[in-house]
Design a protein around this nucleic acid. Structure first.
Length: 115
RNA sequence: AAAAGCAGUCGGAUAAUCGCGCUUUUUAUUAAAAGUGAGGAAAGUCCGUGCAUCCAAGGACAUACCCCCGGAGAAACUCCGGACGGCGUGAGCCGGUGGAAAGUGCCACAGAAAUGAAAUGCGAAGCCGGUGUAAGCCGGAGUCGGCUUGCGAUUCGCAAGACGAUUAGGACGAACACUACGUUGGCUUUGCCGGACUGCCAAUGGAUUUAUUAUCACAGGCGAUGGUGCAACGGUGAGGUAAGAGCGUCACCAGCGGUAUUGAGAAAUACCGGCUAGGUAAACCCGGGUAGGAUGCAAGAUAAAAUUGAAGGUUACAAAGGCUGUCCGCCAACUUCAGACAUAUCGCUAGCGGUUAUGAGUAAUUAUAAUCCCAGACAGAUGAUUAUCUAGAAACAGAACACGGCUUAUGAGCUGCUUUUUUAU
RNA sequence: CGGGAUGUGGCGCAGCUUGGUAGCGCACCUCGCUUGGGACGAGGGGGUCGCACGUUCAAAUCGUGUCAUCCCGA
């Protein structure tokens, strides 16, 4: 789990992020981006892999853990996420079964799109 | 050695770096240390419990579930042991296994008939004998009786002959006759002779038929055989009969009832009896047994906040509504829509607990003692990378209140017992 | 977590209650009609009834298990 200040909670917060309708797709991963804040904040990040993606929870948890690990390493290196209030990463069936390197590269490419 | 059956085990390991949840302690809001952290199925949600809230004065009927016997268990579409049935050469495996003799329904097509079953209405006219009627065939042989003749001789026997009886009927056997054909011989036809053919006659040969036949009438016996079908009032074989039949006949088998023995019981074995009862209850149902109902931890409890609408509908006569599915009975209110709130703590993990030892029991299980504390999150913790090894590529798969089962998924192996076959000694 | 429903030709659905014959519409193929196409008319092909086991003489239908899909509540 990420530290508490980085976690995206609450259904209303998720809905608020979705309503911005700003999304990017790369290699089976969709990124939803929230509002841009003027003040530096801790960006709240959520991970979603729906049950429709795969029936078995082991496969879904694996994908979420790989995405979370990639983000954790970025936070550790001091990445600022361009002052976004919130981000949501949605894993799709194309991303299942891929290695950590592939997931990591996809997420870095997605974050570059924010500029 | 190979192929099987059953039971059990394992469910990656080590190291480095970067990380996560919970608990405790120390510090004190920045953290640090220590401990601990997914499964045999956590899965499917197919059963059963605990726990929690709401409802229920109560009665009756429904309803749901269970169904060989004994035991275990809190209970169970649970487990253990046994009985019976089925499958397999076998070790073993499988089985929702009360009642079809309480009643109802169904059994398509085919078939005479499919269940208060029993017809001859299907086959070339069911099979069988009897009587009658009609037509046809034979009219003989055998048997018996005395007589005559001959032979042998014991009052008798044998052979031949004709006569009579049986008998004017018979149809048991055999023969004759009849029919067609072959062979041989003779006769016949023409003016004459010869031959062939035809016809006739005789002998002979083998073959066929050889006494009954009737789609007739009457009164009966029979439930067999063929055919239909999953199934036809028990099956196979023999005896028996005019033909037949479990036919108060027989053997074997299936089923039913009774008695005896064994067993705790399901049941088994033996004997006897009568002589037979279609299938389906995973169709309704009948019998026996069990169950207050509903909702599921997002149940629910506490604290804090909020608890709104000039909204609508039904009813207060009757109807409708609520209280358990229905009825009796009881109650006076019930309800829709929109909006708002949805935070924290508890519930929450010490339990029908785990491990070990001993005792009881065939076993399931249980008793006693010792010892251990072993996830508890809330956008949700077990991860990532690298190296080495087993087996260059590690299966199925992730707790969300808990427990007991069942079912399903599962890689590479390992261990024990048992069976069958083959080979060797 | 709990509750409910559905799997039948290429597609959408009947038939299941009460077991014996699998049918309808669109689509497809052939022929006709038309100058040609569409529409229309006539004819035809195509289905392991999701899968497995069982009950029964006989199963799409009855029973059990299993797989997949969809919906609902909080």
């Amino acid at each position: 789990m990420l530290p508490k200040e980085y976690r995206l909670k609450n259904k209303s917060a998720f809905n608020a992020t979705y309503r911005i309708k700003k999304s990017f797709y790369k290699n089976g991963i969709i990124m939803f981006a929230g509002k841009i804040s003027n003040v530096p904040v801790h960006t709240k990040i959520g991970f979603v892999v729906s049950k429709k993606t795969h029936k078995r929870s082991v496969k879904r948890n694996r994908l979420k853990r790989l995405m979370r690990e990639s983000i954790r390493l970025l936070i550790k290196n001091g990445y600022n996420f361009h002052n976004r209030q919130s981000l949501i990463f949605v894993g799709k069936s194309q991303a299942l079964g891929k290695s950590f390197d592939e997931i990591d590269n996809s997420i870095k490419l997605l974050l570059k799109e924010l500029d």
